[in-house]
Design a protein around this nucleic acid. Structure first.
Lengths: 203, 203
DNA sequence: GTCTATATCCAGATAGAC
DNA sequence: GTCTATCTGGATATAGAC
């Protein structure tokens, strides 16, 4: 009895994950309003009506995905911050790694694309807007802190660390969007070009 | 008689421009699908039905705006290319100017936002997609050519000029999107940080 | 849990009076 | 040219059978 119950819950969660995964793809490609519940359901392989057994609305799915997307980004930033290496090494390694990720991980670029769509639209549900407002600044803060650390250590260029963080993230974001909107065919620029923006000469 | 006719045509064109202007705002903020014809008409100050005397569909308006947006960008790139100064000066001055524009011109950032939305969605009308495919690479080509020129002159860093152009535009694009999604409150990073990516040391 | 059928709503586009 | 009223299609969400 109880074992069946557990299994049912697991099955339900698996289906929900599948729905989220397909919804993410659709939202990233088309945005909230051009994505139809039917599209998502078809990709999952279920009838349109059935989707409402798992989520009560399109918006609910959207909000869940926003949450996941930002949490992943924040988590990655935090684990970068926590690494036991000098600040300039954090910047260096993260840029190298992200460029590789942009070139190879469709999922990462979907996330970037999704976030770009969400941030770029004032028409999304208010709960989604609240979440964005709450979470989007975290990665900027963390990189800003690392920049400041590096300045104290004498390895990062002078200037407002916040602005350095803005440049860091917007450059990466711009590249990711460009990549995904070109169907992953663009070779990334040499990582050193980006790295050298932030490192002091000679480091 | 003929004078009246001319006047009528002028009036009509003025109204059309007004519609385009308001539509641009709406599209930039909300995207094609979340923007309702009624929203545009209301902002212009006319009844929803009347809009169809000026344009035959929402898509037609959208396509017209895409065309204008890219043409402006291409025109600016071409006039940069045509300037009678060394290549590295073209890069330097354009970055300085664009950063100022991002900070001050709402219209420019609306254009960036609109283009970002359009490029980011596969759900837009096929004619719009065709236009994007046709026109979006032009500014990249032009900057790439200038980079190459500068390399010959020994003032621009080594590396694939195409990739330098990608970095140039994606960084700018990322900044513009960030700015507009923060309602124009973000101070731009020091232009020299960006300029130094591309200039050879000592130039 | 899963499907089909349907109620309901909303927005694009049209028709027709002024 | 301008408006109001309306047609029409399509999408969300629900109901109800299996």
């Amino acid at each position: 009895m109880s074992r069946n119950k557990e299994q049912n819950i697991k099955m339900r969660e698996k289906k929900q994950e599948l729905i989220l995964k397909e919804a993410m793809k659709e939202f990233a490609m088309k945005g909230l309003f051009a994505t139809k519940i039917k599209d998502i359901a078809e990709n999952v392989g279920m009838a349109q009506g059935l989707l409402y057994h798992y989520y009560k609305s399109k918006e609910e799915i959207y909000i869940e995905i926003i949450n996941n997307a930002f949490d992943k980004l924040i988590e990655a930033s935090e684990s970068l911050e926590a690494m036991n290496i000098p600040a300039h090494e954090k910047i260096r390694r993260s840029i190298i790694e992200i460029l590789i990720t942009i070139e190879n991980s469709e999922e990462f670029n979907q996330t970037c694309r999704f976030i770009a769509q969400a941030i770029n639209s004032t028409a999304i549900p208010s709960e989604a807007q609240r979440l964005i407002l709450e979470k989007r600044s975290r990665p900027y803060q963390i990189i800003g802190k690392i920049m400041q650390e590096g300045q104290s250590e004498g390895t990062i260029v002078e200037g407002d660390p916040e602005q350095l963080a803005v440049l860091y993230w917007t450059a990466i974001n711009g590249l990711a969007i460009y990549q995904v909107s070109n169907e992953g065919k663009i070779p990334m620029p040499d990582a050193n070009l980006l790295i050298n923006i932030f490192l002091r000469k000679g480091v």
